[in-house]
Each structure stands twice: as C-alpha cells, then as structure tokens.
C-alpha cells in the first residue's frame, strides 16, 4: 500500500537556512548540509530544498552547494529557486535532484510547465503555489508583487499544463505553528488530481492528524516543527499510524 509522506521543507537565503513567518521575518535556523544529513539519518520520506531569495536577487541557485546538500540524501529530493530556463532544470536533475520546484516562471511564462513536462517528464516538475486567504473560500496566488490570480484556478491550470505535483503553501499559516489551512487544501484537492503536498502551519503531530482527517491529502510538508519543537517526522508518523493512516517507518538496520 502506498504510504502518506511527511516532508521537511528547507528554505535557504543563499547563506543559511531561514524560517519565515507568513513569508516575512526570516530567522536563521542553520546550515543546509548539516540539516540534510540529520533528516537523512532520520529516514524522512522526501526533502524539499528551496532558495527563496534567488529569483528576487536575480541570481541562479548555487549548483555546487546544492549538490553537497543532495549528496547527503538517499531519498527523493525536490529543489527549487531561481529556475529561469529548461537548462536550469536540466542542471538540477544532473546533480541528482529528483524533482524541481517552479514558482515564478510558472506564473510569468504560461508555456514553461508544459515544455518542462514534455522534456523531462511530468513526474519531475513540481509547482509551488503560495496562497493567501482573501476571504471565505478564496485565496490569491501570492508572490512579492500581487498577481490577482485565484490560487485554486491556478492549480487547475498547472495540472492541465502537465505539472506532476503541487507544493501548496498557506502564506497565512507559514511559521505560525497552529495548524494547517484545511479549507485551502480541500479546495485545491477538489480542483486537481495530481499529488498535493500541504504546507504551512504544522506545529504538532495533532495538526498533521487533523490535516489527514479533514482532507484527502497524501503528503504534508513542514519546517518550523522540526526546528522549534522536540517532534521529529517519526513522531508525526507514529501519531498518523496509530490512527490508521499508512505511514512508512524504520528501514532495514534501524
């Protein structure tokens, strides 16, 4: 049986890992290579690593450095940040990324996702959708400048273009650690059939349990819980497993 996935999301500013609150107030939380090593030793299901300032600073992601992060990982890794061309995707896949996470170019170039999926396969093209609540049952696709786009509609569109997965982050819940925006997750799940990773707000194993009970999502991402609490991905999965959700536990030799 296919297992649910719990995925640490590492956000990087070009120097160190940072943790934001509602996409602001970045707080430094450590070294990416060490963090990747720790998450690998904890046997996490996957890892997402994204350089959140590359695009806005007009620079490319640092490939030799990212390769060092990937080299610590013996599980699937998704890399995002500063992707501006198909060549950038190819570069990331060549150093061992399993998927790439595209955000800004998915918004500004409507053909980019389709081209990437055709060239490299849909399974390795993930799209980051950051959504900010604008009212009851509506969310705006968020980036530094207003997009005016409906986040749920945008999810539907990137699926049609051939995206293999959506990493859906609630801007309002980011770093707040008081639970996921399950309404947002349900709205996007109703719109698409591709896998969705729900991110934003997971501060305790109970929050993850609530997410999996109230929605049909099969994957959740988080970061603050791993930096600021005693809980590991094992604790989260133990909670989920105890409530009948299929979770993956220790591997051979553990």
């Amino acid at each position: 049986m296919l297992k649910i996935r719990i995925i640490p999301v590492l956000t990087f500013n070009g120097f160190a890992l940072v943790k934001t609150k509602q996409f602001g107030n970045p707080r430094m939380v450590g070294n990416p290579i060490q963090a990747a090593r720790v998450f690998n030793s904890r046997n996490v299901d996957e890892l997402v690593f994204t350089d959140i300032t590359a695009t806005y600073s007009g620079r490319k992601i640092n490939l030799p450095f990212v390769k060092e992060v990937i080299d610590e990982c013996f599980m699937p890794v998704t890399i995002g940040g500063g992707i501006r061309s198909l060549e950038d995707i190819n570069d990331l896949l060549k150093i061992g990324a399993d998927k790439v996470l595209v955000k800004n170019l998915a918004i500004s170039d409507r053909n980019f996702i389709a081209q990437g999926a055709r060239m490299f396969g849909a399974q390795c093209i993930s799209v980051a959708i950051d959504a900010r609540k604008t009212g009851s049952g509506s969310w705006e696709l968020y980036r530094k400048t207003p997009t005016g786009l409906d986040a749920v509609e945008f999810a539907r569109m990137v699926e049609q273009e051939g995206a293999g997965e959506i990493v859906l982050t609630s801007v309002d819940r980011d770093g707040m650690m008081h639970g996921f925006d399950t309404d947002l997750v349900n709205s996007v799940l109703e719109a698409v059939n591709i896998p969705v990773v729900a991110v934003g707000g997971g501060g305790s194993p109970d929050h993850f349990l609530e997410l999996f009970q109230k929605t049909n999502v099969k994957a959740a991402g988080a970061s603050a819980i791993f930096y600021f609490t005693q809980f590991t991905s094992y604790d989260i999965k133990k909670k989920l497993g105890d409530h009948g959700f299929p979770a993956r536990f220790m591997a051979a030799g553990n």
Partner: peptide, 27 residues
C-alpha cells in the same frame, strides 16, 4: 493515479537480495 509514485512495501518472492527486507517500503 498514474504514475505510481511514492513509498510502497514489497511482497518478496525470491529472498536472495531481500533478506530481512520483507514488508519494508521502497520508492
């Protein structure tokens, strides 16, 4: 949904290379 993507467990038929790995998950 296709592709079949994620962690899934095995039902081992030939144990030669799967010693002690029955029921564990693979990607």
């Amino acid at each position: 949904p296709v592709p079949h993507m994620g962690w899934n467990n095995l039902d081992v038929r030939n144990p030669l290379y799967f010693q002690d790995l029955q029921d564990l998950d693979f990607y």
